[in-house]
């Protein structure tokens, strides 16, 4: 059950900041409420996974949610999919219906096959290794996108989208995400998983999985009940479960 308090969105505008995720951890540690959404017009030290830089000029959307779900750390990893869905539904509002929105495991959002958003989920454990809070950061390319990145990027503007001003966008994004979050709280992972799979990039197609120095190829055959990627290697009878690493749907990439 979700209480009315859980559904409230508390939007905080930071102007220019180092990193909305870093600021969100500070505030969560100081007791900031579930549903707090920190928004920056630009980030000076925007970051992605493994400390990679997320270039953050004005014009794009940078925001981090503070979430306090009553679940364990393993269950909270499902938020990667919840966030991808929230971003995907948000973007669809401003795009022509003919422009496809897809998801690349677990939380990349692709528009016309190109990456339009990045999501950085960071959970913090308490004294008994209980889940204390989750910071869910998103960077969405609204006006501009970087060139020369591993997976080609795009922006809402480049895809012919006609977004309103950024302050309104942030609010709509916040509501769109919370709608998905509340659906997850009420109904569990199953409908989230199903909706994600309906828009999965490269389902039943060849995929390459890279884990550190190693990589392997197979066919992307689905998601298991926990959200692990299922990849069937040539000659194997059962698919392998992937819970970590970078995933490249090869046909989608070749078509860009």
């Amino acid at each position: 059950m979700t209480s009315p308090q859980d559904q409230a969105l508390a939007l905080v505008a930071l102007g220019r900041t180092e990193s909305t995720n870093t600021e969100a951890h500070h505030r969560a540690g100081a007791g900031a409420a579930h549903g707090t959404l920190l928004w920056a017009e630009a980030q000076t030290k925007g970051r992605g996974r493994h400390g990679r830089e997320w270039i953050s000029p004005p014009g794009n959307l940078y925001a981090s949610f503070i979430l306090r779900p009553a679940c364990d750390a393993a269950t909270a990893t499902q938020l990667a999919f919840v966030a991808a869905l929230g971003v995907g539904r948000f973007l669809s509002r401003y795009l022509d219906a003919a422009i496809p929105v897809h998801f690349k495991w677990p939380n990349d959002v692709l528009v016309s096959g190109r990456k339009i958003a990045g999501i950085l989920a960071e959970s913090t454990m308490g004294k008994t290794q209980n889940l204390e809070w989750v910071v869910l950061g998103v960077g969405i390319n609204i006006e501009t996108h970087p060139e020369g990145v591993e997976w080609p990027a795009t922006s809402l503007r480049a895809q012919g989208g006609n977004p309103p001003e950024i302050a309104e966008l942030v609010e709509v994004f916040g509501q769109s995400f919370l709608f998905c979050y509340n659906e997850w709280q009420e109904k569990g992972f199953s409908p989230i998983r199903k909706a994600w799979l309906e828009r999965a990039a490269g389902l039943d197609e060849p995929v390459r999985v890279r884990l550190g120095e190693e990589s392997f190829e197979g066919t992307f055959v689905g998601l298991d009940e926990d959200g692990a990627l299922l990849v069937l290697k040539d000659g194997d009878k059962d698919p392998s479960r992937v819970t970590s690493g970078d995933v490249f749907p090869m046909k989608v990439l070749a078509g860009l």
């Binding site: 996974r49 750390a73 990893t77 677990p106 989920a121 960071e122 959970s123 308490g126 970590s244």
Partner: peptide, 13 residues
């Protein structure tokens, strides 16, 4: 890290 979620493990004391 699991499913691209980074879990910060902190000193309990």
């Amino acid at each position: 890290e699991a499913m691209k979620t980074f879990n910060q493990i902190r000193a309990p004391k």
